[in-house]
């Protein structure tokens, strides 16, 4: 008899992803679902999806989900977690959501040390609205609102939100990972597990920034998109543990 070695994670609904071919969101959703199952916390988890490509995350993740206005994930998560401190609360946010319109809510939630987990998907572009410049768009990178490439004097530098959050007093675990290769996918899963464990132990604000591919808006093939991450993006957004006051848990 054949042995089952691969199956749909328990907390992933049987819906077909709406994401574009080669998009990183579907990988990251799956990793979240696997981690919730492996940590046995899916039945006491409440997720907060963003406005952006992952706005429909509730169609895929089979846990309680409460939708936040654009950028306000950290504030909504704060309200849920403070009323239900024994539940696990996470937000799932893109770069525009978290690092532009929601910067204030995110920084202050981190600074208060809200015991929530933030999954920050950085693909350097506003995907849902059709490829405008994001706060994380690289210098020289083209977008629909930076047709000749991002220009420092006109558009400013790409922002490193994770570094900014690291200097707040309430954040305890921040790591930047990626999902453009199996090795990086495995690393991302470990980071997600550590972030959720940080919350389970009540240690404070945890965040995993996942550098992710957006072939459609980058106008690349999925393979080229993965290469571009490795060769270009990671030199500005290096993968590393940015802050760890948690240690081995």
């Amino acid at each position: 008899m054949a042995k089952k070695i691969f199956e749909r994670p328990r907390y992933l609904k049987e819906n077909v992803y709406h994401y574009c071919p080669g998009c990183g969101h579907s990988i990251i959703h799956r990793l979240v679902a696997e981690v919730l199952d492996e940590l046995a916390i899916g039945e006491r988890t409440i997720g907060v999806p963003p406005a952006g490509c992952a706005v429909l995350a509730y169609n895929y993740l089979d846990v309680d989900m409460g939708e936040a206005p654009h950028g306000r994930g950290a504030a909504v998560a704060t309200g849920i977690k403070r009323m239900l401190p024994d539940r696990i609360v996470f937000t799932y946010q893109g770069d525009g959501d978290i690092a532009a319109i929601g910067t204030a809510e995110t920084i202050h939630a981190a600074n208060r040390g809200e015991n929530v987990t933030v999954i920050f998907v950085n693909n350097g572009v506003y995907g849902m609205t059709g490829g405008q410049m994001a706060p994380t768009t690289l210098l020289g990178q083209s977008s629909t609102t930076t047709p000749g490439g991002r220009d420092r004097s006109r558009d400013g530098m790409p922002i490193d939100l994770s570094q900014m959050l690291a200097v707040t007093g309430g954040s305890v675990y921040i790591e930047r990972t990626a999902v453009h290769s199996p090795k990086h996918v495995r690393r991302t899963k470990k980071a997600l597990a550590k972030a959720f464990k940080t919350q389970m132990q009540g240690l404070g604000f945890s965040l995993v920034e996942v550098v992710s591919q957006c072939p459609t808006n980058w106008k690349m093939t999925p393979a080229d998109a993965c290469r571009w991450i490795e060769e270009t993006i990671l030199s500005f957004y290096p993968l590393k543990v940015i802050k760890d006051e948690v240690g081995d848990i």
């Binding site: 409440i46 936040a68 998560a77 309200g79 849920i80 403070r82 202050h108």
Partner: peptide, 18 residues
Amino acid sequence: AESELAAVNMVIGAAMAG
């Protein structure tokens, strides 16, 4: 809260929690 905006969104979260 850090702003009126954050305050009302925290209220959204707490209301979701019942």
